[in-house]
């Protein structure tokens, strides 16, 4: 397979979240925040390169919004090039990883950062369609590819 983006820019990984004393305190409640959501998905592998979405700046912490009152989580991702054909797959991987790792009370939306992809609307529509997401996961080949992107336990 020919690579679309042969030499992508690689960025530095952010440090591990520092564990505060408060987090060991039984009586405190730690609400889910943007950083936590970011930590869940930053180690997803890019389908093309042996790099993580964080290193390619596809995902950034400030593009994630968490609203605990309305139980909403919104993730924007930025494809490395505007005509990236992998964008749907990346979006799907992010969605699946979040579906498996977040409490079911949240409504999760995954979309492309506005203005960074040529067929932004089409992809956003696909990613927002629950039926299509669950249908695509019935496809065992596709599921395998998604699992491989998500399976990055060595990085965690």
């Amino acid at each position: 397979m020919e690579l679309e983006n042969i030499n992508p820019n690689v960025f530095k990984k952010s440090d591990e979240r520092i564990i505060t004393e408060k987090e060991w305190d039984e009586s405190c409640i730690d609400p889910i925040d943007a950083r936590e959501v970011f930590d869940l998905i930053r180690s997803i592998n890019d389908p093309e390169h042996p790099l993580t979405l964080e290193e390619l700046h596809v995902l950034e912490e400030n593009h994630i919004t968490v609203d605990n009152d309305k139980n909403e989580i919104r993730v924007l991702f930025t494809p490395t090039i505007p005509h990236c054909s992998m964008a749907t797959l990346i979006g799907l991987s992010i969605r699946v990883k979040l579906l498996r790792s977040l409490p079911s009370r949240y409504k999760i939306s995954v979309a492309i950062t506005p203005g960074t992809h040529t067929s932004e609307n089409a992809i956003n529509k696909q990613l927002a369609d629950k039926e299509r997401i669950s249908a695509s996961l019935e496809n065992s080949t596709l599921l395998e590819v998604v699992n491989q992107c998500i399976a990055s336990r060595s990085n965690r």
């Binding site: 564990i19 987090e23 409640i29 730690d30 889910i32 990883k97 790792s101 998500i150 336990r153 965690r156």
Partner: peptide, 14 residues
Amino acid sequence: PKRLVRNAAVDARM
């Protein structure tokens, strides 16, 4: 309610 538990649970569930 605790983040550290959630992290461990995510790892296990994945």
